[in-house]
């Protein structure tokens, strides 16, 4: 198609946007609001996933050994643990090392530990990591059956609950967003319908002088796309500002909470929302064109 034809389409679409000012504004606002909510959901789910993932990668099985085990018996147990399928690595933590770790954690209150120094109440243990998180349960059970292992602990439950939470949020978010997108498509198609109506005379003349259906449709589709684009632009601006602010506050006040880093996430989100925005705009106008351009 000719470049001058595209110029013509774009000029017509812009003219129409301006002529329909108020309705256009309403459409742009709806797109912006919908995408703002969509964006917030996406960011929330990303972050919950990230937190759960971080916790999950830290999940390990702690196997505490019988306190009255002979010295050196742990070497045999280590071998058996390594043979369990799905085990990634296992590290032996001796009584002494466990106490050292405690010291590090206690920082400047070493005095609390001094009293237990002589009769170290801690036990030798293995810290076992699984190759895949979902194997943790089975591995823990296997280890518990080994001779000389007194007790097995793991933090699976928290992670499972977190994953359940993200799943529910994802489903609820999806439902809300689908509804909002439908509403947006409806509003855009309404706006385009008004434009089609306002320009029915022009369309009639176009048909009389031999315009093809697509020639008539394109300016309207472009108008829808522009509405989608403008709305997305607004929502992206707000999301960007908000998320940088949010990540910043979390970093500075709750440094141990893992937040998805803004730059990458927002780049992906921007691309996704723009793609969706243009689609929603184009689809919105196609819906009304299909119904109102039959002549």
């Amino acid at each position: 198609m000719r470049i001058s034809t595209w110029e013509f389409y774009i000029r017509e679409a812009l003219l129409s946007l301006r002529r329909n000012g108020l309705m256009s504004l309403a459409s742009v606002s709806t797109v912006a609001l919908t995408f703002l909510i969509l964006g917030l959901f996406v960011l929330l789910v990303f972050n919950l996933d990230h937190v759960a993932g971080t916790l999950e990668s830290q999940v390990e099985v702690a196997a505490y050994l019988d306190p009255d085990l002979e010295d050196g018996a742990h070497l045999e147990i280590a071998k058996l643990i390594k043979e369990i399928p799905g085990v990634k690595e296992s590290v032996f933590v001796s009584q002494g090392e466990a106490l050292d770790r405690l010291r590090v954690q206690f920082g400047d209150r070493q005095d609390l530990l001094d009293s237990v120094e002589d009769m170290n109440p801690l036990r030798h243990s293995f810290e076992v990591k699984a190759k895949r998180p979902e194997d943790v349960k089975v591995i823990a059970a296997e280890i518990a059956r080994l001779e000389g292992v007194a007790d097995v602990k793991y933090r699976q439950e928290l992670v499972e609950r977190l994953f359940n939470l993200t799943r529910s949020i994802r489903i609820a978010g999806l439902a809300v967003v689908v509804l909002l997108i439908l509403a947006t498509i409806f509003l855009i198609s309404n706006t385009i319908r008004l434009t089609v109506f306002a320009r029915r005379k022009e369309i009639g003349i176009m048909k009389l002088v031999g315009a093809t259906d697509w020639f008539i449709r394109w300016p309207f589709i472009l108008e829808g796309i522009m509405l989608g684009f403008l709305g997305t632009l607004v929502s992206i601006q707000i999301l960007n500002r908000f998320y940088y602010w949010f990540a910043d506050s979390v970093y500075s006040s709750l440094p141990f909470v893992p937040v998805v880093s803004p730059a990458d996430t927002l780049r992906q989100l921007t691309l996704f929302l723009f793609g969706l925005g243009l689609l929603v705009g184009a689809f919105g106008s196609l819906v009304s064109l299909r119904r109102f351009l039959r002549v």
Binding site: R2, F8, K201, E202, G204, I205, M206, V209, G210, F215
Partner: peptide, 28 residues
Amino acid sequence: VVFQDFRLLPEKTVYENVAFAMRVVEEP
């Protein structure tokens, strides 16, 4: 085609009204 009621586009200039027919058929 020419009709009794002219059927011109009120927002376009005379030139644009005529050029319109050529744009529509994608003349260079």
